[in-house]
């Protein structure tokens, strides 16, 4: 497997009004091309900070990370947040088109790709709807479509289904799996759900409470393509047990 991203002793300390806050400490790992990596950990640990660093939204205070592609080529990164984060003044279709507009893709081609993407997430009937008309699950599907249409080199998912109810959440996990299996890209997903992490990932990392560092790193050797039923595999259950024990 080719190496895509190398994270080297990454650390982040925030200087807030109440003094220093160390969010991330000495995090090192390597992400392969097309690898799906999940990060589990107690809430309030520096998981989101890791994603914000990789997305270039903040600068690290220690260590560094480097993408394996050519040194002066910036990789394309898509970010999905816990909230769908759609632009309320744009329709579903226009929201999905946004990354292509930014990339300067020609209009006809962009529309073609957006329509295919809308079909993939099953929102054909809502292409012209406003975000305010969507349920939480539908809005998050639009956000995922928007992330994938950019054809990112790296997809960063920050608790993408955290605001959804349990049933919708499971369905969305399976749907994300389906989309990802058709459009392989490197993914780092922060989540609280052990089964979500196991169903989707090639590898799972567990973070300690703040300042976050890696306490467990586990390869998930379940055959692909995986389905909903994979959740009931005995091997899956064993993995889940091990992860549960490692999270404090």
């Amino acid at each position: 497997m080719t190496q895509f991203l190398e994270v080297d002793h990454l650390g982040m300390t925030f200087n807030g009004a109440e003094g220093e806050l160390q969010a991330l400490q000495d995090v090192s790992f390597i992400l392969a091309e097309q690898e799906f990596l999940s990060v589990l950990g107690p809430s309030g640990s520096g998981k989101s900070t890791l994603l914000r660093l990789l997305a270039g939204l903040i600068k690290p205070t220690a260590g560094s990370f480097q993408f394996g592609c050519l040194p002066n080529v910036q990789p394309r990164i898509s970010l999905v947040f816990q909230q769908a984060n759609l632009m309320p003044w744009r329709t579903v279709l226009q929201n999905i088109l946004l990354p292509l507009e930014l990339q300067g893709v020609e209009r006809g081609k962009a529309l073609e790709r957006a329509n295919a993407m809308i079909q993939l997430v099953g929102l054909e009937e809502f292409a012209q709807a406003w975000p305010s008309e969507l349920s939480g699950g539908m809005a998050q599907r639009v956000a995922i479509a928007r992330a994938f249409i950019a054809e990112p080199d790296l997809l960063l998912l920050d608790e993408p289904f955290g605001s959804l109810d349990a049933l919708t959440r499971e369905r969305m996990g399976a749907e994300l799996l389906k989309i990802w299996q058709s459009q392989r890209t490197a993914v780092i997903m922060v989540t609280h759900s052990i089964s979500e992490a196991l169903l989707l990932s090639d590898r799972v990392m567990v973070f300690s409470p703040r300042p976050a560092s890696i306490v467990v790193e586990m390869k998930v050797d379940l055959p692909r393509p995986r389905q909903e039923e994979t959740r009931y595999d005995p091997q899956f259950q064993q993995y889940a047990k091990r992860l549960r024990q490692s999270i404090k």
Partner: peptide, 12 residues
């Protein structure tokens, strides 16, 4: 909204 600003920054 800051979230949308982040989104735009992450998309360069």
């Amino acid at each position: 909204p800051d979230n949308l600003r982040d989104l735009m920054v992450s998309m360069r």
